[in-house]
Design a protein around this nucleic acid. Structure first.
Lengths: 230, 230
DNA sequence: ACAAAAATATGATTTAAATCATATAAAATG
DNA sequence: CATTTTATATGATTTAAATCATATTTTTGT
């Protein structure tokens, strides 16, 4: 993990977009750019919160552990996403781990500076509140789905969300490469069950799998799977 | 549902506690007290957001539907709790339903007034942001548990949370009366499975069940059940 | 380039929990 | 108060998904 400070453009991330122009120099001089390679931990569950991170380039996963060998992935993050914000509640430790899925550059603000920034940028606080409200709604929807929807439906949802979030490349494949295990951990199932289910979707020509990439062939069918039925 | 306007004390709810004293008269003249009887819907999933509610007296459940006959209960609310705040994101419809579990009085602010209140009370916005951050952490923990913890562990957690949230009465029973179905819907399981599991805890003398009330006899055992094991 | 480690691929088996079915008790309602 | 509705209680059966086991392919580190 190297460190530098001239990288982020002061335009794209959540803080920069929602702070007053007068505050940008303060951001400029307080931000730190950090570099992580694939597989490296950006911050870790139960560690003391040091600050807040913004993804500048690369992709990462935000996950919660369950015992030594299970996890639930909460979020796949892409450039300009906030990560570490979950640590802003009353607890002073991160409730999640963030791991780089590819080489990653983040923009980091330590907690004192970030709290200062919130204090002098009410608009930022307001937007952050709204952001949390949306995240909460999403989390609660997924809670309901984990409780009641079957794996196939949840996998359909995962694929639709990935498409929405990461878009498609020129060949029409979803623009992120994930291990099967990570897809399983996001969907809330085991590797084996995920494997069988995804193969089933492929056999039914609803999706196409090539070299770790996924293309959605029949989006409408995924939408149906993702809905209450019977 | 009757309506009045002199009921809430301008002290206990989240908005009153976090607004400047100068703003209290505005709150006074804009709040509406609404009355609901047991079983009545306070607001409903997919309905246009009208405003934000604070429980003044009584208890309520906040739940999300799954098809016509399943649901997941997200929250049991008690006096001074905010409900309806989940509607503050980008969507203009409530993502959840709120239903009175007993006779309920709520304090209601319409959305324009509430947004105005946020604008002139930065401290309130900041506290609300923190509140959301905590709710999000809780929701994500429960997500992980729904994905990986068994019903017995989740029931243990439910009971511990209910105790923490509603306290005990003089006889040492948790201060809320719930139908088995509601406990099941909160725990994320079916009535039958909940029934068998709760009876098992009773047989093991970990809890005591009398007249719809629940007493925790061996809290430590519930804590253990609620943890990763094996 | 090669060994070791990680990821994928699948079949077989087990298990937790959902579903189905039905009886009884308690509560709400005209 | 009688009746309909709602909640509780339990046994039997089915099913989805986890677990176990193992072979093959692909990556990665040295």
């Amino acid at each position: 993990m190297k460190s530098s400070s001239n990288n982020c453009d002061l335009k794209s991330c959540f803080v920069c977009r929602n702070s007053s122009t007068g505050w940008l120099p303060a951001i400029e001089s307080n931000k730190k750019n950090l570099f992580f390679k694939k597989g490296q931990t950006i911050f870790e569950e139960d560690m003391k919160v040091k600050g807040i991170y913004f993804l500048y380039s690369g992709k990462a996963k935000v996950h919660k552990l369950w015992g030594p060998e299970k996890e639930l992935i909460l979020k796949f993050a892409k450039p300009s996403d906030i990560i570490g914000y979950r640590g802003l509640g009353n607890e002073k430790v991160y409730p999640v781990t963030a791991t780089a899925l590819e080489p990653v550059v983040v923009c980091f603000f330590d907690l004192p500076f970030f709290e200062e920034t919130l204090k002098v940028n009410n608009q930022l606080t307001y937007q952050l509140m709204k952001f949390y409200a949306n995240e909460l709604q999403e989390a609660e929807s997924r809670m309901r789905d984990l409780a009641h929807m079957d794996v196939k439906g949840r996998l359909a949802q995962t694929l639709l969300q990935l498409k929405k979030r990461f878009g498609l490349n020129k060949e029409g494949f979803i623009n992120i490469t994930l291990k099967r295990q990570d897809i399983a951990s996001y969907t809330g199932t085991t590797y084996e069950t995920l494997y069988r289910t995804i193969i089933e979707l492929e056999k039914d020509k609803i999706i196409r799998l090539t070299g770790g990439k996924i293309a959605i062939l029949k989006e409408a069918k995924l939408e149906v799977l993702n809905t209450y039925k019977k």
